[in-house]
Amino acid sequence: MPPEPVEVVKSRREAALARLVASVPYIGFLGARFDRRGDELTAHLPFSPMLIGNPQLPALHGGATAAFLEVTAIIELAWTNLWEDIEAGRLSDEIALPKTVTFTVDYLRTGLPRDAYARARVNRSGRRFASVHVEAWQDNRARPFVAATAHFLMP
């Protein structure tokens, strides 16, 4: 069988990612987006004044950055788990998301009033539990400003 045309593969993956992201209204509230290269996801949080927590500095709200990391971790974990179904074109109508059990966030630097990016790595994905590490940066990839580790209960 000849390989599938690249447009077909890409549009199937983009549609699956869009469905996954749209399944979490809170991602829309934050204004976060997800960029995809193959199976690699990068979350993007465009700066918005409503993300500010300290107007004097000004600095991003620690809660907003924590939430950005949490949605990045959840989407990465769900994406990784659904990858085979997406590739096979049998993503079910109901997407069940992992549930956060614990979330530990370390604030490394002040979040500046500009865009932020994040990538998550699934350290372990078991039948019931998964452990995910996630970090975010702004101007320099090598200088993360916040990092988190989370445990999830799998659906």
Partner: peptide, 13 residues
């Protein structure tokens, strides 16, 4: 159900 991120933000504040 409210997203954990909003609850994190509340608890942080």
């Amino acid at each position: 159900v409210i997203h954990g991120g909003a609850i994190s933000a509340l608890m942080d504040t």
